[in-house]
Design a protein around this nucleic acid. Sequence first.
DNA 1: AATGATGTGTCAACCGGTTGACACTAAGGG
DNA 2: CCCTTAGTGTCAACCGGTTGACACATCATT
Lengths: 329, 329
Amino acid sequence: MPKIEDVAAKAGVSVTTVSRVLNNRGYISQATRDKVAQAMKELNYQPNEMARSLFRKKSNMIGLIIPTVSHPFFSELVYHLEYYADQKGYKVLLCNSNRDISKERKYIDMLKKNQVDAIVMGSNVQDVKHYLNLNLPIISFDRTVANNIPIVTSDNYTGGRLASRLLVDKGCRKLAHISGGVGGPNHAALLASKRFQGFRDELPDTGIEHVSLELEITGLGDKRNVDELVRFFQEHPDADGVFATSDVLAALVIQACHQLKKTIPQEMKIIGYDDVGIASLVWPRLTSIRQPIREMSECAIELIAKLLQGEEVSMINSFPVTLIQRDTT
Amino acid sequence: MPKIEDVAAKAGVSVTTVSRVLNNRGYISQATRDKVAQAMKELNYQPNEMARSLFRKKSNMIGLIIPTVSHPFFSELVYHLEYYADQKGYKVLLCNSNRDISKERKYIDMLKKNQVDAIVMGSNVQDVKHYLNLNLPIISFDRTVANNIPIVTSDNYTGGRLASRLLVDKGCRKLAHISGGVGGPNHAALLASKRFQGFRDELPDTGIEHVSLELEITGLGDKRNVDELVRFFQEHPDADGVFATSDVLAALVIQACHQLKKTIPQEMKIIGYDDVGIASLVWPRLTSIRQPIREMSECAIELIAKLLQGEEVSMINSFPVTLIQRDTT
DNA sequence: AATGATGTGTCAACCGGTTGACACTAAGGG
DNA sequence: CCCTTAGTGTCAACCGGTTGACACATCATT
């Protein structure tokens, strides 16, 4: 690995001059600039970003903590976050917490030790204290944390209402609400619980009843998930509409319906949430509530960029959701 | 951010002593050890890993370049890679290249500048030269690069044969081979082309003919992909067996079949590849060739750990694939 | 009493790059 | 001819932590 000294020697200038070229400061003639550039090229020189970061006290790295990238919602989220981070010159350190609080804490410490400039939390955030005296920007994705931590979310409440309303409008008489997440249950801090709220608030004056099941997802391909759904629907044979809080859950519901020989959407209408890729890869294609993941990711990165420049940002950044009608309703 | 100096002051010892405690070298009494630990706790001190890395010339970071995490194969891969990396104390810098060669190059440079200890390439690797004079370990995932770069792969050839054989055994008379990837076509360097080879090698003595389609996947949810498949099957109405080189493609084939009112598996048998989560989330549940992604990821990280300790490693690390029979065959 | 292991401190160099202070030269303008 | 601006160099300090050399204790052994 060549160092700045080697470049200086090869170009026949001083280290300071090379640094000046590198950082574009002070007076430098075009001739010197060229000589230095030439030397760099010949040596295939790349400045050591660690050394620069150390001096600047800025690493241009952001840490990303999520439950697991293997869930399609997070994999799409991570994709877009990385894209926009890269656009702004940030690198992404990825951490899968599996919603394990102790692992989450370890990751936070690790990220801090490694001098990330900011952290995006897409995982649970339970013990708030741990995050407050971290003197670096944190932004939270779809989770409430504390009122001094900016949050990016989408309109979960309206999402829930839209889902209910659609099922009601399509003539459903008894609804089922299926929730659950990979790697542990969803807690109240998770804003997704507002979906349930919205879902229920749409029902009172319709006289439509609803039942609810919280699934403890064990792994995407695990047949036990479907089995539990089948049992649930056997207990509630009159349920004719399902709101699943993620498309993955909705896909499992579809499987349960097939197993129970219920036709979709005739005997059972299903609506999912997120509108990730899988929604249009299952059959029938899934009606879903779309979260604008790309836009939310872009917003998250912009928030970070602003925070790092000391600008004020709004604490709550909520995006509208849209109903995507396909073939399950 | 407290520094080692502050800890020394608070504990009433010298910086050297703190460093000795931190790194467990030389003689230190238990009393001092405790005093220092206490001071660290009180100050909430975390050693600056950048500074340490700079001195040690080892960052414990590994770079990961893949086409896109949003594809389920890669999202599962990344999940496991990060898991095992973390186990061994490595952090993961994630890069989505979208199979764009210039972006790939930029990422490689970026990772080098940022002093990653090693790179895992799960993306295309086309201009070999660029990677050879990188004086850091690279390992390649399921792609051939150069004979001095270790590679982790699975037995694609056998995978192809297993798929063919199953379709033949199940009585198919005309097979279709569907390939294609997200973000650009698959090239010869991609070992997945061996799947096609294996697929074909199983056919000659059976007298079964086959046709092939390379799809240019535009995005998971894009309906045009299905339309193209529908057209293809209309051109080949007698095709009754499909080998898709990924489960995502197989899911699209299922959609095309539904659209064409072909029953699965009676009129059309389908087998996918990878056996990622989606394989058991579609209906009918997909028969697939399973790649042991977890084991492959573990191997990749172990290879890196060995390379970083200067140990010799085997250049080709191929894992067996297994046929997972479900309901599409 | 000499020896050696243990425990801690001081000091300086180093990792690779950045920056400010300052000196010096050459060229151009008024 | 003086002044300013451009262009480059030298030097040292700094980012935060690590390490080796060396000095100087203390304490237990022999």
